[in-house]
Design a protein around this nucleic acid. Structure first.
Length: 214
DNA sequence: ACCCAGGTGGCCC
DNA sequence: GGGCCACATGGG
């Protein structure tokens, strides 16, 4: 099965996911850090806490003490680490005067390199920010993507992050909206279906899915 | 009482 | 470059 066919099936089965679930690009950035190794449900609580206390802005995060910020984002786990990571990201944003419009004139590769230099921002988080906050045509690879492609037998086997990303980006038109939707659908399938369990009850691929067992 | 979730950095080899 | 581990909460 080709990549685009897989995408079409996912889209037909689930419908558009219209990610990222956030109100603003800045909220996407914060959410990208907060969701590291954590269920989205817990991230929602942390974001909600930040909103209630009006802490969802660069300056608020910057000038809130580590202890207080950690306490606010507590529900999403790893809260001490993530507090520092959020602040590191704010340091980067300050280079652009906290003005996302000023990021627009920068090359995607430049922004990616800069983001990867921020301690606590790895490839997936950087690419999430590039795609979902900044609308760049960068494909996000995550654990679901690996497992699902592995089980479907699509793409390179035992691939690194970069290899997998190159596979997606090389076999799809560089359309941010497509990348956006495709990754969201993969996550939907990953949560919904059976990438780790032996039984697959609802799979968009029906009985052609390698996960499928009646 | 486990296991897992929309990862990353440090340390070791 | 890969294999482990800590980081921590909430839900199954």
């Amino acid at each position: 099965m080709e990549l685009l066919e897989f995408y079409e099936r996912l889209l037909a089965f689930y419908g558009a996911q219209s990610w990222w679930p956030a109100q603003t690009p800045f909220e996407v950035m914060a959410g990208a850090v907060l969701t590291q190794g954590t269920s989205w449900k817990n991230v929602e609580k942390a974001i909600s806490n930040l909103n209630k206390l009006s802490l969802l802005s660069p300056d608020s995060i910057r000038y809130t003490s580590d202890e207080e910020l950690a306490d606010v984002i507590r529900p999403c786990g790893f809260y001490m680490v993530k507090t520092q990571r959020l602040k590191n990201l704010m340091d980067w944003l300050q280079r652009y005067d906290d003005n996302l419009a000023k990021l627009a004139c920068k090359e995607t590769s430049t922004l990616r390199r800069e983001l990867l230099e921020v301690k606590g921002i790895g490839k997936e988080t950087a690419d999430t920010i590039l795609l979902y906050a900044l609308g760049r045509p960068v494909f996000v690879i995550d654990a679901y993507t690996r497992r699902i492609l592995e089980r479907l037998g699509i793409g390179p086997t035992n691939a690194s992050y970069d290899e997998l990303q190159e596979f997606f980006e090389g076999n799809l038109p560089p359309d941010p909206q497509l990348f956006n939707e495709f990754h969201a659908l993969i996550v939907k399938l990953g949560k919904d279906a059976c990438t780790k369990r032996p039984l697959c009850l609802r799979c968009p691929l029906g009985n052609t899915c390698p996960f499928y067992q009646s």
